[in-house]
Design a protein around this nucleic acid. Structure first.
Length: 651
DNA sequence: AGCCGCTACGGGAG
DNA sequence: CTCCCGTAGCGGCT
């Protein structure tokens, strides 16, 4: 992107009325312009909405899906043999082994041209400031419990009266004064907040006292208003004939779509012809979609719980970071990086598990594969960093000992948790082979589990084993993929169990930071799930997948102990690749999309083949556990064919 | 140059 | 809609 004073901000280029409105305060637009001149990406990199990005699904995604086998061993329908993958190497390469969905691709001539590159978009750097802000002092005024819930959902006035004290001046943030030039020290507390731009959270014409302008209930499809919708129209017009339905949808088996389409607020054409006998087992009553949504709503995190848990976790983490940095010169450069489902916003049920990576940048290291998975490595230094205290973690052969490093960190943490006041924290017992140091934080009446993961940021390019992974070109774009691969790969201190002698010197590649980025920016079009953009059900599907596995694990703890949420997350990411378009994930099609993900996962289980999303040669389902994979696949099929009874069971 | 206070904004809950 | 948390950039300060 050429820099220059005349360069329009990405948001303006995208033509979003909302963004232009947001850019109104002079201070901010000036900042943005300055940022652009300095060649930086716009905040969060999501401001660009290139009409051509909203292309028709010519790349892939059109499919017909047969239901999986029934409980009891009915043969799976296989009449939709894989074909049509030619013309799309990435899919052919990675997904040819999935026989059930049939990817019918448009001919090269009819396919849309490759999408224009997206703006870099991923400008992430752990910022210490954020962590400092979460210090106990900053949190002191934050009440753990929000005020009583307003009886009405539109709680403008009531909400304005809620908890006037609290962290970061947020309560007063949406004042009505225009943005004023910043001056440090002069504006504290409410003043500070009042100085903020009032534009956010308000629509034109809304009264300043917080009373909401009456409006129609929200639907899945935002009404055509503002310039965003208008600009989306050309892209829609590019779609193949078939009205509002995308090219992909035109191919979709109508079987289980009919109810979903009814649930969708967007009028869409649905093929009228049911597809024969295999339709029966997976046909869902129309109420299914509603029930899944009801399940989803049960899984959302309560605000008070989030508030309480995040306060505790942030307090503990910021304390530990300060202490660890000061204790050992080797760890002085650690940066916390939030990871895992809570920070990906796909945590379900309770905010009781947090993952924090403590990232240590390391330069000039050499990675040697420790086995043929392509995931485990020995780490050694090409040149040992001076004065950093690394020597004590090196073995005789020069390999960096993951075990020793983690133990050193663990010792520091064990000492430090004792000094944390007001919060009761204990270090959990070691779990063999687990890269995390798990802290238990008392949060009566329950506990929060905080996983601290020692992570090396291996400055340099990704190992060769990842070369054909991350096949997101059709879904997120080639530029996004390139930018992601520009980021350093991470390594976590994880024992490779396949080693004959466990010496604790192997490190496993970790892509938590990339996964988080993908899940937070999951749309094929950049506006997916933004407040004015179309909502998709990708996250909903992932949450349901996690919930299903969680529930089944509760029901069959012994049989399913080997499965973890990373399996379903991986299957989900593959699903996103197979159905790359936002039109494949309409919010109203939740049940259909969820089934599709599950059927893909079941297929992986039946074949004992679930490819690591970033390391294609790495199979997450080891062949030794075939019977367990089949067990889970049978249980999932049972759920699929019976309306997910396990969602309504309590364990 | 790096730290840190501040502001802005997205996303999710209610 | 508002509220709140997480995230990220700006810019003053050291």
């Amino acid at each position: 992107m050429a820099a220059g004073p005349a360069l329009p901000a990405a948001g303006a280029q995208g033509g979003s009325a909302r963004r232009e409105r947001k850019a109104a305060p002079p201070a901010r637009s000036e900042r943005r312009a300055r940022r652009e001149r300095r060649g930086r990406a716009p905040p969060r990199g999501r401001a660009t909405c290139h009409p051509a990005r909203l292309r028709q699904p010519g790349g892939a995604g059109a499919l017909v899906f047969s239901p999986c086998g029934r409980e009891g061993g009915a043969a799976r329908e296989r009449e939709n043999a894989p074909r049509g993958l030619e013309g799309n190497r990435s899919f052919a390469c990675c997904y040819r082994s999935f026989p059930v969905p049939e990817l019918r691709l448009l001919k090269p001539g009819s396919a849309s041209p490759p999408p224009p590159p997206r703006s870099p978009g991923f400008v992430s750097q752990g910022r210490r400031a954020a962590w400092k802000r979460n210090s106990p002092e900053a949190e002191a005024g934050t009440p753990l419990l929000a005020g009583p819930r307003s009886p009405s959902r539109r709680c403008g006035k009531g909400a304005a009266a809620m908890d006037p004290a609290g962290g970061r001046g947020a309560r007063a943030r949406r004042g009505t004064r225009p943005a004023v030039p910043r001056s440090r020290g002069a504006e504290k507390g409410a003043e500070k907040g009042a100085a903020r731009s009032p534009e956010r959270g308000r629509v034109a014409g809304q009264s300043s006292n917080g009373a909401a302008t009456p409006r129609a209930p929200r639907t899945d499809a935002p009404p055509a208003r503002g310039s965003r919708s208008a600009r989306r129209a050309p892209a829609a017009r590019e779609l193949p004939a078939g009205g509002a339905a995308s090219g992909a949808e035109a191919f979709l088996a109508p079987r289980s779509r009919a109810p979903a389409a009814r649930a969708s607020a967007t009028p869409r054409s649905v093929a009228a012809v049911p597809d024969g006998a295999d339709a029966a087992p997976a046909r869902r009553p129309p109420a299914d979609a509603l029930r899944l949504r009801e399940v989803l709503s049960r899984l959302s995190l309560a605000r008070e719980e989030v508030s309480g848990a995040s306060t505790l976790v942030n307090r503990v983490v910021s304390h530990l970071i300060q202490a660890i940095r000061g204790k050992d010169s080797c760890f002085s450069s650690i940066e916390p990086q939030n990871a895992g489902s809570y920070y990906e916003r796909v945590k379900i049920s309770k905010p009781n598990e947090f993952d924090i990576m403590l990232v240590m940048p390391v330069e000039r290291i050499q990675l040697d594969e420790s086995d043929d998975t392509g995931a485990f490595y020995y780490v050694s230094f090409k040149r040992i960093p001076k004065g950093k205290g690394w020597l004590k973690f090196l073995e005789e052969d020069g390999k960096l000992s993951a075990f020793e490093m983690r133990e050193a960190l663990r010792e520091i943490i064990k000492q430090e948790v004792k000094t944390i006041k007001d919060v009761e924290v204990t270090v959990a017992r070691k779990k063999p082979g687990c890269p995390a140091i798990t802290l238990q934080i008392k949060n009566p009446p329950s506990e929060i589990s905080l996983d601290i993961i020692l992570t090396l940021e291996a400055k340099g390019s990704w190992p060769i084993s990842t070369r054909n992974g991350l096949k997101i070109e059709q879904w997120l774009g080639t530029k996004v993929r390139k930018n992601m691969r520009f980021k350093s790969p991470y390594l976590v201190a994880k024992q490779n169990k396949s080693e004959k002698v466990l010496r604790g010197n192997t490190w496993r590649l970790s892509f938590s930071h990339i996964e988080k980025e993908i899940i937070k920016n999951h749309g094929n079009s950049k506006t997916c799930c933004e407040s004015d953009g179309p909502k998709c059900c990708r996250k909903g599907c992932l949450k349901l997948l996690k919930y299903l596995l969680e529930q089944l694990k509760m029901k069959y703890p012994k049989e399913l102990e080997k499965f973890c949420s990373y399996h379903v997350k991986t299957a989900f990411l593959h699903s996103c690749v197979m159905w790359p378009n936002d039109s494949d994930w309409h919010l109203g099609d939740l049940d259909h999309c969820f089934q599709r993900c599950l059927e893909f996962f079941v297929d992986c289980l039946q074949k004992s083949q679930l490819t690591h999303f970033f390391i294609p040669q790495y199979n997450l389902l080891s062949l030794e556990d075939k019977s367990k994979h089949h067990f889970l696949s049978r249980k999932i099929c049972h759920e699929l064919n019976n309306g997910f009874p396990v969602f309504h069971e309590n364990y």
